[in-house]
Every structure is written in structure tokens, then in C-alpha cells.
Design a binder for these strands. Structure first.
Length: 350
DNA sequence: TTCATGACCTC
DNA sequence: CCTTGTGTCATGAA
């Protein structure tokens, strides 16, 4: 008989975009595959790479040119989000049919609250989850199980690909101590560097800092979060219905004027809105030197009108361009937020 | 409260 | 060989 305690599972579909492509292109199996966001025929960045490609050192975020240099026979495919969304929805639906408390965290991740449970049983459920994902769409995944979201996530990261890892409550301590600081969610490069500059390099080092010290350096929320996370404490709930808070659409200029690109962004954003009411409009401009400028405006009333969207977006863009004379624009985005329950509904999650 | 910006996540 | 696309949250100033 194992421990009976609350357990949360995180299921994460392995190298999801690339695995979806392997599904419909069996002929590429065994070859290195990179699914890329392409701006031109030869330029862009890797969004997802299969493990054959990763064996050559190909990683997400890497420029396509570099990926090609690393992996000679690299198969380069463009991102096809709507195809991956269909597969994701089918899987998520199957998971929801079996479990009550499911929180979809992204297109390829979901938390499942297993409640108070014997951890040996939880382990079997982990295997069952893997089977559900396999049956629903023939997709391989990794499942992490722990006493909270944090440990479930870290267990999952540790077990990829095609893995299952259970961290029991009494194993949390040693599990954390065997983890690097930057393997803790929300401790990214910047935070890790900041900690390193203070001489903090391991989880044990970080535990020696007081909450007050952490708050002084990282601010209240983040300071408290780091304090708790390095101790394996995480009270976040599995939230079954998460509502989207904002939606934005980026567009590259590709020779057009910023105004023309803005119009396309607004149109495509509006399509996805599907009649949803919004009360805030924003514009984001990314310049050639990668600096970012944003402007946003709260409207008097919530609206679902395209005319209001585009006219506000235009004036915000004008204001930004005015204040940044002559700088060349790379991309523009239109953003809407402050949704209110209207007739409409947002199309698909993510 | 509004607005701007930055950090982080990660396919 | 600097890159593409979203979304959330925190913070600080106005």
C-alpha cells in the first residue's frame, strides 16, 4: 500500500508539432524534422524538432539556417497550427471524458487533478493517461505526477520523451535537491543569472535566502513564489475553465507599409474574435533592431465592431510611429482584451 | 485605474 | 549567422 495524498498529473505531448507532422508524413519518420515559422523560403525559426533532429543539436528558437547546418538531411516544414489544434482537441476531449478536473495549459499540455489518491494507483492512472492519448490520436506523451502542479511539471520535464514519472510526497525533497535552479518553472535565464550573481547556484543555496531578501530582489509575487517553489510548495489549483484574457495577432511587414500590415493583423484578429465583446485595444510595434513599443487604450464601452477596432488601432500605430521617427518597423500586432460575455465566443483555445 | 514595459513560457 | 509568434502577469509611474 502506497501513500494516500493529493496528486496532480501533467500530461505533455512529446515534441508536439513535429510529432503531428510525423503522423501525416510517415515517409519522414527516422529523418530529422524541424517545424518552422518561416518568413521567407530560407529564413525563420524552429518551432519544434523531433528527437532525430535534436540529436544533431537542433532546438526550438534556433534560426533555420543554423538548424540546416547542424542536420544535413533536415526536413523543414511550415507550422500548421490548425492541423495541430484538431489533434490537440481530439486528445483533450478524450481526457475530459475520463477525468473531471482537467485544465488545458497550452496546445500540448494539461493538468489533471487526481484528488486524494494512493500514489501506486496514481502511477497506474499515469499509464492510463498515456494510453488515452495514444488511442485518441496515436500521439506519444509524457506524464508527470506529484503533490502539486510544480512537482508534476518538473517530473514531466525530467521524464521526456515517452515517459512517466511519479514523485511521491516523501520524495519531493530529494527530487528538488537533484534539480538545477533553472529547471524550476519561472526561474528562467534572467532570474537564474540574477541569483548566480548573488552566489546562489543550487536549490539548497536558494533555501538559505529569506522571503524578505527574495522580495527585495525580485518583488513581492516573484519573491514569495521562489521562496515556496524551492521548498516544493505550490498551492495553485487545477482550474477547469480558464478564460482567455487577451488575444493578439502579429504580422510581418514583408515590404508593405506598417499601416497595411496593421490592417491585415486587425482583420485576422477580428475573424478569431467571433463576435466577442472587447473593451481595450492595443498595438505593438517591433522595430528592425528588435526594440518593442506598445500602446493601448481603454474604450468607453465594450464593443464587437471592426470599425472601432481598426480606427483605434490606426491611431495608436500613428502615435507610436510619431514618437519613433524614422525607425524601421519589422512587425506590428493588434491586441484586444477586457472581454465581456457577449453573444460571441472565442474560437478554439490557444 | 490606466498605460507601458519587461520577464517568462515554449511549441 | 539575432528569430517568430502568442499570452499572462507583475511592477512602476502617471
Amino acid at each position: 500500500m502506497g501513500t494516500i495524498s493529493r496528486a496532480i498529473a501533467l500530461v505533455d505531448f512529446d515534441y508536439f508539432f513535429a510529432q503531428c507532422e510525423e503522423l501525416r508524413h510517415p515517409e519522414y519518420r527516422g529523418l530529422p524534422i524541424a517545424v518552422c515559422m518561416l518568413t521567407g523560403p530560407e529564413t525563420g525559426a524552429v518551432a519544434s524538432a523531433n528527437y532525430v533532429a535534436r540529436g544533431f543539436g537542433v532546438k526550438s528558437g534556433m534560426p533555420v539556417s543554423k538548424a540546416k547546418a547542424l542536420a544535413p538531411n533536415l526536413v523543414i516544414l511550415p507550422v500548421d497550427i490548425s492541423y495541430y489544434s484538431q489533434i490537440s482537441s481530439a486528445i483533450m476531449q478524450s481526457i475530459r471524458e475520463r477525468f473531471k478536473k482537467v485544465e488545458q495549459a497550452s496546445i500540448d499540455e494539461a493538468y489533471i487533478d487526481l484528488g486524494e489518491i494512493d500514489y501506486d494507483v496514481a502511477e497506474d492512472i499515469g499509464k492510463e493517461i498515456k494510453n488515452i492519448v495514444k488511442s485518441a490520436a496515436n500521439i506519444r506523451c509524457t506524464v508527470g505526477i506529484g503533490p502539486n502542479k510544480l512537482i508534476a511539471k518538473m517530473a514531466c520535464d525530467r521524464a521526456k520523451p515517452d515517459g512517466l514519472k511519479v514523485v511521491r510526497p516523501d520524495e519531493v525533497e530529494s527530487f528538488l535537491e537533484s534539480s538545477r535552479l533553472d529547471q524550476i518553472p519561472y526561474i528562467g535565464t534572467k532570474t537564474a543569472e540574477r541569483l548566480a550573481s548573488m552566489g546562489i547556484r543550487t536549490v539548497s543555496d536558494a533555501r538559505r535566502l529569506s522571503v524578505d531578501d527574495l522580495i527585495r530582489v525580485f518583488g513581492e509575487k516573484k519573491g514569495i513564489m521562489i521562496f515556496n517553489f524551492v521548498r516544493g510548495i505550490d498551492e495553485r489549483k487545477v482550474e477547469v475553465k480558464k478564460e482567455r484574457k487577451e488575444l493578439e495577432k502579429f504580422v510581418s511587414l514583408k515590404g508593405r507599409s506598417p499601416e497595411e500590415a496593421l490592417e491585415e493583423a486587425a482583420r485576422r484578429l477580428f475573424e478569431r474574435l467571433n463576435g466577442m465583446l472587447f473593451q481595450e485595444v492595443g498595438v505593438i510595434v517591433i522595430f528592425e533592431d528588435f526594440t518593442v513599443r506598445t500602446k493601448s487604450r481603454t474604450l468607453k464601452h465594450a464593443t464587437a465592431s471592426f470599425d472601432e477596432l481598426i480606427s483605434n488601432a490606426r491611431s495608436l500605430l500613428g502615435a507610436i510611429l510619431n514618437e519613433s521617427e524614422g525607425k524601421k518597423v519589422r512587425r506590428v500586432a493588434v491586441k484586444v482584451s477586457r472581454f465581456t460575455k457577449g453573444e460571441g465566443s472565442l474560437l478554439d483555445f490557444i
